[in-house]
Design a binder for these strands. Structure first.
Lengths: 133, 133
DNA sequence: AGAACCTTCGCATAACTATGGTAAGGTTTG
DNA sequence: CAAACCTTACCATAGTTATGCGAAGGTTCT
């Protein structure tokens, strides 16, 4: 079998996920490895790095796979991203209105940057790490 | 009690949500109404509109409250947004895999603002309509 | 005062998420 | 060939999400 890519168990070891989870993660569409002609999943350097980063992401910011899955959906569905973005945008802009009981003062997040629709964000040439590859 | 803002039950009726859900939605931080001096929740035009839009959003794109909640988190936590954005960015590219400094690389993608706000439709003066207010 | 609201707290639950197993059956390779 | 992998499929479960309902106790309005 091709050397340069790890099988699921090997990948599991070096990434810290269980083989079971790697299959689950594939199901969610977050990291889909290639397959050998006989159907074995083959994790290359890119996938491995991605899996580690994913792990890091979930741990560092108490985020869940489903959350990242949603972000992925937004990245792929511009319309969805627009809709969500618009919804999020609204609250900030709300001049004088009701509820002025003082206390409910919104923190002025003047910096509601938005995140990402990297979809076509063309020019980012960002390389990946390698593995026992 | 102040007129111009609806109490939870009235708000529930005009938005289609149940009072229970309005409390839940408040818990998630998605729509937090003001309060009367005695503690009653007061939903103003903005909140009402927001609740309807939210409903529309969930229905139109099979999205869940927790998903929007996550988007909200990203909007408020730039660091989180950057991390997720960076992670999402990686997969698309397939240069030729050079490799080196690995993960510290994307750290530079600090400028990947993104996610679609309904942005460009600039003057999308989305006015809020009135209620029995 | 009393009806009709509102509040928080807690119980209950169906559906889903995140994981772990196990079984039946191919694939690789020593 | 047989051990050691891999695959899909299905069972199981702790935890979370999304909802509803009811209790105990303030608030409003008529």
């Amino acid at each position: 079998m091709e050397r340069g890519a790890l099988t699921i168990q090997e990948a599991a070891q070096t990434t810290g996920w269980s083989a079971r989870m790697l299959r689950y993660i594939e199901e969610t569409g977050l990291v889909v490895p290639g397959r050998s002609p006989s159907g074995y999943r083959l994790y290359g350097p890119a996938e491995l790095q991605r899996l580690r980063t994913l792990r890091h992401l979930l741990e560092e910011f108490d985020v869940e796979l489903s959350d990242v899955g949603f972000a992925l959906r937004m990245q792929r569905d511009q319309e969805l991203a627009d809709a969500v973005g618009a919804w999020l945008l609204a609250p900030a802009i709300r001049p004088g209105e009701v509820s002025d009981s003082g206390w409910l003062a919104y923190e002025q997040d003047k910096h509601l940057q938005l995140l990402a629709a990297a979809g076509r964000t063309r020019p980012r040439h960002h390389d990946i790490e390698e593995e026992t590859a």
